[in-house]
């Protein structure tokens, strides 16, 4: 369990806090989406979860380990894996296999174990066979899957994706996103998705909306999406499917408010048609 308790964070030299009094809990295996406009503190929150940033006030506990405790940092970072936005800045080694090995080498594991875990992680993200390829010869989607493998190899319990699909084209974005959901199923990982794509956010178990460093909304996506006024003041728009559902409702069709995917909306429409 990750517990964020009354956390305030101020960047050096800044007047306003990037985060102010944020509290939340993330359970093992949970899929949480954190959204909000630019500058709302999403990425700051992500960096607090794995101890890259330490809170000014309040505390962050990862399975009971306090991120302010230097001794716990390595274990916290093993447990909370993080994939960043820019695929080119987070790959550190000159070949695919060496890159996956990097985190394991930092943990001080014996070489035989490292080789085993590298192979398993590459297989899990479908990059087996590319072990000796240099990262700059991979596609954008492959680079992000490689970054994912580097994190997975460390056997984390929580996976933080900080806009990890934002720099990819739509096909690659879908590819990486599916991969993450599959891995969550297979390994029981908790996924913390930092995103400004509402279409991705609505697929989470729980959705958190940040605005100007404060948590303004929290709950199942279908409920959060009903708070349209609050969403609008946070600068967020309904995803297309929900907007369409809303228009249809206003036109008098009996579409339930919790249709968030294309399939759900299609099913609801089908039900309406077949009732007549």
């Amino acid at each position: 369990m990750i517990e964020v308790q009354g956390v305030t964070f101020v960047y050096p030299g800044a007047n306003l806090p990037a985060l102010a009094g944020v509290s939340l809990t993330i359970k093992p295996g949970e899929f949480v989406a954190i959204t909000g406009p630019n500058g709302s503190g999403k990425s700051t929150l992500a960096r607090l979860l794995n101890g890259l940033l330490r809170p000014r006030a309040g505390r962050v506990l990862v399975d009971g380990l306090d991120s302010r405790d230097e001794q716990s940092l390595v274990e916290i970072r093993r447990r909370v894996g993080m994939v960043f936005q820019d695929p080119d800045n987070q790959l550190v080694a000159a070949t695919v296999a060496d890159d996956v090995a990097f985190g394991l080498e930092n943990l001080g594991l014996p070489p035989a174990v490292i080789r085993e875990r590298v192979a398993a992680a590459l297989a899990a993200v479908g990059l087996s066979g590319l072990e000796t390829r240099p990262p700059h010869r991979l596609s954008g989607g492959q680079k992000q899957r490689l970054a994912l493998a580097g994190v997975l190899a460390m056997a984390p319990r929580y996976l933080v994706l900080d806009e990890a699909t934002a720099m990819l084209d739509p096909v690659a974005r879908e590819e990486v996103f599916r991969q993450v959901l599959d891995l969550r199923q297979a390994k029981g990982l908790a996924v913390i998705l930092i995103t400004h794509y509402m279409e991705e956010a609505v697929l989470a178990d729980r959705m958190l909306v940040l605005q100007a460093g404060r948590l303004v909304l929290s709950g199942p996506p279908a409920e959060v999406m009903l708070q349209e006024d609050k969403l609008a003041t946070a600068g967020l728009k309904l995803p297309d499917i929900m907007a369409l559902g809303k228009i249809l409702r206003q036109a008098g069709l009996k579409i339930p408010a919790n249709c968030i995917t294309v399939e759900e909306l299609a099913r609801a429409l089908w039900k309406l048609v077949s009732r007549k």
Partner: peptide, 26 residues
């Protein structure tokens, strides 16, 4: 800018200097 991002990514993967590191390549 890349160097900054890289440093962050390395730290996130539990890098803390050469001490206590092992190597895959023997």
């Amino acid at each position: 800018r890349r160097a900054e991002g890289l440093a962050e990514a390395m730290e996130a993967r539990a890098y803390r200097g050469g001490e206590g590191r092992t190597r895959m390549r023997q």
